[in-house]
Simulated assay, not measured.
Amino acid sequence: MKVGLLGAGRIGQVHAVSIAGHPESTLAAVSDVHAPAAEALAAKFGAEVRSSDEIIADDSIDAVLIATSTDTHSGLIEAATAAGKAVLCEKPVDLSLERARACLAVAQKNGQPVMIGFNRRFDPSFAALKSAFDAGEIGKGELLAVTSFDPGPPPMAYVKVSGGIFRDMMIHDFDICQWLMGGTPETVTAKASSLVDPEIGKAGDFDTAVVTLTYSDGRIATIRNSRRAAFGYDQRIEYLGSEGMLEAKNMLENQLVKSTAAGVTGAKPMHFFLERYMPAYAAEWDAFMKAVASGARMPVTLEEGVAALAVAEAATESAKTGKTITL
């Protein structure tokens, strides 16, 4: 499969490794609004530098991976599917739920496969938890707790265009809840503050948040996010069921545990997502490739991407108004 990569920033560079490293895909072309970034990445993998429009219009390119700024995602999904290409697009679908719904309607009409890049579903530990749950090992799921703490906040220039913590950061956790709970919640209640950096608050965003999701049958999910964890990248899931509990714990820098008279110590969690989730990105791309080749349902559909954005918008409204939002 010949692939065009739209976007050569940090996440585009991660995806380039997966595309080029897969035995059945070739990174054919790269685009970016910042030409030096596209040139450097293309040179590294022997690809051409072209504009996004040129890549989409090229009939020899079978698929595109969209890793551009979020406000361009919907338009590129529409254009690529109209050109007959399979699409893997980074999350979120858009900054606007209304625009994302319009994109969904166009993509459905165009009839090409679209997958949204919620890479955490493909993390080996999280995938094992999902498999154990689906196998009935803890009975009926009742209470889900998701923790996601970054080691530090992103640059303010990014914060100002990110769409806010719920659309940018916690949307991963909304998708995890959708994946494990089997659908969208009935109500969304969010509490949020700016404790890490006052500039984030001045920009109208939050850096510390807790969200409670309730489902129509009474099940509950809680999500905790923070832009600051001094000890590293904290990524955990606990799923309590009628017959037990499943836990996916942090990936550590190493597995050494030192036990002495002074105490018992171990390593910190991996520092950030680039270390923590590289295997997940490779597995995500492999799952996309297999779905395109077989014609199977995409592992993370565009509809699921829109649903996660709907929860993010509800959480944003709840945090700002203090009200519980019914979806």
Rank of each mutant, 00 (worst) to 15 (best):
V64S: 01
V49K: 10
V292C: 15
K85I: 02
K130C: 03
T326M: 10
L213N: 02
T326R: 15
D71G: 08
E243Q: 15
E238N: 09
C103K: 00
D123F: 01
V49D: 05
A229I: 00
D58H: 07
A262F: 11
E284S: 12
P151R: 06
A20E: 03
G204R: 09
N110H: 13
A282S: 13
I116L: 14
G244F: 11
I66F: 02
A28N: 00
K109H: 13
I116D: 02
I165K: 03
D59K: 14
A282E: 09
A190I: 10
A296H: 02
V211I: 12
D123P: 01
A37C: 03
F174G: 06
A267F: 08
V257Q: 11
T68V: 14
E284N: 11
L195D: 14
C177L: 02
A127P: 06
H172Q: 14
A283E: 10
G12E: 00
G21P: 07
D168A: 15
G117R: 05
G117C: 09
P269Q: 09
I220N: 02
G136Y: 07
A82C: 06
A267C: 04
P269R: 08
G305W: 04
G182R: 00
G12P: 01
S51N: 07
E275D: 14
A221G: 11
A230C: 05
V210R: 11
K91L: 09
V264F: 01
G164V: 01
E137K: 15
S162N: 10
A35S: 12
P124I: 10
V33W: 05
P269N: 09
N119I: 09
F174D: 03
E142W: 00
G84P: 05
L274N: 09
Y239I: 07
F122T: 07
I220T: 15
A293Y: 05
S259L: 14
S148K: 14
T301S: 15
I11L: 15
I19Y: 01
D94F: 04
E54S: 13
P153M: 09
P198I: 12
V211E: 04
I220S: 05
K44T: 15
G46A: 03
D62G: 11
G266K: 13
G232R: 01
P198V: 10
G75K: 01
R276K: 09
P92W: 00
G75Q: 06
T212W: 00
A63H: 04
E317H: 05
M1G: 13
L143M: 06
E142T: 02
A107H: 05
T301A: 06
I200N: 04
L104A: 06
A314L: 10
Y239Q: 10
E98P: 06
G12F: 05
I171A: 03
E39V: 08
Q235M: 11
T147F: 12
W179E: 04
K2R: 15
D94H: 08
